[in-house]
């Protein structure tokens, strides 16, 4: 006989345009609060595994219920009817609202978002300010940004790059099978692959195991999720919408050497959210949920504390 057990269910949450979002719910349905985690670009809910492991005792004792889901076009979630050109972070905000309505229709909610997942939360706040404070009682924004990610091109080469990118993207999506073939030739286990991932995403303190795990999760992403969301990230601008989030406690975390959403983005978030608690984590990059799951979990616990 197993002494303590933790409940777990899987769900395919349908969106109005026919996408099916893969969600995993762990913990007791009677838990007083639900934590919903949104992952980053070209990742999947697996990128929260280490944070979830940190929170396992809380789940086991029934003090919190955890919802992880794959964002549209990521992990096991499907694309729905949306055309690549219409892909916006706002759509992900609506998806989060759909997940909440389907899986957490009542009770207090704490949201956690990593990178694009943080932007998803901002998009939700922008479109559904009524939810913030009323249902959403806290937000953890990890390695993320409220906008101005795309820098205007300065050199001729950069201008050319910007002009060609859409065409390269659509070609890659159209020929994704071939591109995937190339990707398979340099698998996550290849030193070259890991060096690239480490350089771009991880800080100096990251272990090889962390890098491999992240590389593996990203290798599962599709060419289309890479290509379709890249421009959407550049267009993401939720500086105004942050006002809605002022109603709730916020935890803002960023790795000191984050190259994708550098520290200044986190500082801007903290400036817009006066009550936010900002942590800049030394020797870490853009992958705090894997690099320092303990710190991320501790921040989340502070948000969960009232319950």
């Amino acid at each position: 006989m197993t002494a303590t057990t933790v409940q777990r269910t899987v769900h395919a949450v349908g969106t109005t345009d026919g996408a099916r979002l893969h969600a995993t719910v762990s913990g007791s349905p009677q838990a007083p609060v639900t934590l919903v985690l949104a992952h980053g670009w070209t990742l999947s809910q697996a990128s929260w595994d280490d944070v979830a492991a940190e929170l396992a005792p809380d789940l086991a004792e029934g003090s919190v219920r955890l919802v992880r889901y794959d964002q549209r076009g990521h992990g096991r979630s499907t694309w729905g009817e949306v055309a690549d050109d219409d892909v916006e972070i706002d759509l992900l905000g609506e998806d989060l609202a759909t997940v909440l309505a389907a899986l957490v229709p009542t009770g207090p909610v704490v949201l956690g978002g990593h990178s694009m997942g943080g932007m998803t939360i901002m998009a939700l706040a922008a479109a559904h300010p009524d939810l913030i404070g009323e249902r959403v009682r806290g937000v953890a924004l990890v390695d993320t940004s409220a906008g101005r990610l795309a820098t205007p091109p300065r050199t001729a080469a950069e201008r050319l790059q910007q002009r060609l990118l859409p065409r390269v993207s659509s070609w890659a999506v159209a020929h994704s099978r071939r591109v995937d073939g190339w990707r398979r030739r340099v698998p996550p286990t290849a030193p070259r692959h890991q060096a690239l991932v480490r350089g771009l995403l991880y800080g100096s303190a990251a272990t090889d195991a962390m890098v491999l795990r992240g590389a593996e999760i990203m290798s599962a992403s599709s060419v289309r999720s890479f290509a379709a969301f890249y421009p959407a990230l550049g267009r993401h601008d939720k500086a105004q919408a942050l006002a809605a989030l002022r109603a709730v406690p916020a935890e803002v975390l960023v790795g000191e050497t984050d190259k994708l959403t550098p520290v200044r983005h986190a500082e801007r978030l903290a400036a817009a959210l006066p009550d936010a608690h900002l942590q800049v984590v030394p020797d870490c990059g853009h992958m705090l949920p894997q690099e320092r799951p303990d710190l991320v979990a501790a921040a989340i616990r502070r948000l969960l504390e009232p319950w």
Binding site: T2, R8, T9, R20, S26, A60, R76
Partner: peptide, 29 residues
Amino acid sequence: TAPNAEVVNAGIAEIRPHSVVTRDGVERP
């Protein structure tokens, strides 16, 4: 690999009236 599917290889420990419990302590209604 569908959104509503899951493969579990933890081994079934016991079956309860409304759930299946695996050896890793996870209970699935």
